[in-house]
Computed example of a mutant assay.
Amino acid sequence: MLKELSRKKNIHVMLVYTGGCNGCDIEVVNCVLSPFYDAEQYNVFLTWNPREADVLVVTGCVTKAVSASLKKIYDEIPEPKAVVAAGACALMGGVYNNIGADLGTSTFIDGPVENIIPVDVKVPGCPPRPEDVITGIVKALPKILNG
């Protein structure tokens, strides 16, 4: 009951960077922590603990080095949970997906986020605008609040 009540009052967003240029990470942190967008005024908080997270925001192409870690983080987030894939790299591998294309396979990319964990909301852009990231998080809320 306490968890359900706190989820209606506060949303904790966990950001996971899985490879790429970090442009999307800057935009996600900008939308949550900057005074201009200030998502904290609406009780949306950034956390680095998967056991506190409600929404997992994944940015970057998923490299082979972090694929297992991403699955582990996803499994540690309590139900109900939502996943937001933000940015072109998270959605389709971005420019990094073409590396090794002449060999018929990428040498260090496991693919977009949805190949590794289920994705509930997709936020396109390179990098996505902070407004779009906030919209993506809001689109994920019904799944969390309704369970």
Rank of each mutant, 00 (worst) to 15 (best):
R51F: 03
N49A: 02
L56I: 07
V123A: 01
R7G: 05
W48E: 09
I109P: 02
K8Y: 03
G147V: 10
I137P: 09
G147R: 10
L2H: 15
A82H: 05
R7K: 11
L145M: 00
L33E: 09
V16M: 09
S106R: 00
I116Y: 06
C126P: 15
V28N: 12
V113C: 14
I117Q: 11
L33Y: 01
Y17M: 10
T47F: 04
T107E: 07
E131N: 11
F108K: 02
V57N: 10
V133F: 12
C31P: 06
H12K: 14
A140M: 01
G104W: 04
V44S: 01
S69R: 07
A86C: 08
V133R: 13
T135D: 15
P127E: 01
M92S: 15
K72M: 14
T18Y: 04
F45C: 10
G104N: 06
K139C: 12
S6P: 07
L70F: 11
E114Q: 08
A90T: 06
A53T: 05
P124Y: 00
P112K: 14
G20S: 04
C126F: 09
D25K: 13
S106T: 01
A53E: 07
K122G: 03
I77K: 04
E131Q: 13
A53W: 11
V62K: 04
G94A: 13
D75Q: 14
V57C: 08
N98K: 07
L46N: 12
F108M: 01
T18W: 05
R129Q: 15
I117V: 13
G100A: 01
C24T: 03
